[in-house]
Design a protein around this nucleic acid. Structure first.
Lengths: 184, 184
DNA sequence: ACCTGAACACCGTTCAAGT
DNA sequence: ACCTGAACACCGTTCAAGT
């Protein structure tokens, strides 16, 4: 537990720099070359800490998962309130996110199968948490699930990311939305 | 109007190749280098037809707009039926799209301001068409607008793309969804 | 009017050699 | 254990020179 004034860099320094670059300019801003210059080190040394650029992006994804999913859920639970309040607070937290990482991560996931799977798992984790809150607030379980799903997708759509679902699922979504849209 | 057996290539040949590459592998698959090899021509000649790679991607975006927005709307109108039928058919058409281009275009738009604006205009065009159908089917105008918006976003979210909206708008969306989720 | 070929820049990746 | 420096590959972009 001492001040990190090492002359040699650890992997964390690379992830810090990559995370910041990602937030500022998306996947394409995460360049080993530029990060190395910023860290005042040669790019060759990067490969001591990481297998390749993909491994670095994977580390950024993991950090994002911790802070924006597990961390956010824990924080929301700790803040208390009844289920209805918790859900509203969660949605407001979601709406307040500037989406920079949400967009960037999904843009990357659209071109990397492993990342796509990780993001899909994270989406499922979030949806099931929302569904649990709605259910606890009195909405029947499977209705809560359907609405949590549609609600989450609409939130995602407000940034527009990239997690493919299958055709049948989407057709079912559309039928549901169609009825919602046409009922007076 | 003759068979295009020119020895010299027109811009269309590049756009055709780029569109196909984009559909198969997203933005990062659109490489002047590789397209040139596929077209059996040097990459230098590309710059006679286009200012740069961005201009080529812009042409892909325009073609996508024509086929997936203007073309789709016209086709749906031509197919007839009452407003309610037209809306359902439209939603089914949407749900059937594999989203390859939808995802790729938005991944690119997340890193290119001009593309982002074009995509935003296209989204608005689509939403207003959906709202018009819902309204014609008997839903009051501003309710139809709100639902068309949420519905469209949910569809987008099912692929997860990248079109930032502002915080206030998203908070309003969330309040609306919250009520929808909690009403029995 | 359209294309070639060579050149340069940017950057990912490898690796032998250094400390 | 961690870093350097040189090398190579890939690819965007420019441009003088060809047809």
């Amino acid at each position: 537990m001492e001040v990190s004034s090492q002359s040699r860099l650890g992997p964390d320094a690379w992830v810090d720099a990559a995370y910041a670059a990602f937030e500022a300019g998306g996947v394409s801003a995460v360049r080993i070359d530029r990060l190395a210059k910023a860290l005042k080190i040669t790019r060759g040394s990067f490969y001591w800490h990481f297998k390749d650029r993909r491994a670095l992006l994977q580390a950024v994804l993991d950090r994002w998962d911790q802070s924006k999913t597990e961390g956010a859920i824990t924080a929301n639970e700790d803040a208390g309130g009844d289920p209805s309040d918790r859900l509203l607070r969660l949605l407001h937290t979601c709406a307040s996110d500037d989406g920079k990482l949400e967009i960037g991560i999904r843009a990357w996931a659209s071109e990397d199968e492993d990342a796509r799977q990780t993001v899909e798992r994270i989406d499922e984790r979030r949806i099931s948490y929302m569904a649990r809150l709605a259910n606890a607030a009195g909405v029947p379980e499977h209705v809560a699930s359907a609405r949590a799903r549609v609600g989450y997708l609409a939130w995602l759509g407000s940034y527009s990311g990239a997690v493919p679902t299958d055709v049948d699922q989407r057709i079912a979504d559309m039928d549901c939305l169609w009825r919602m849209m046409l009922e007076t």
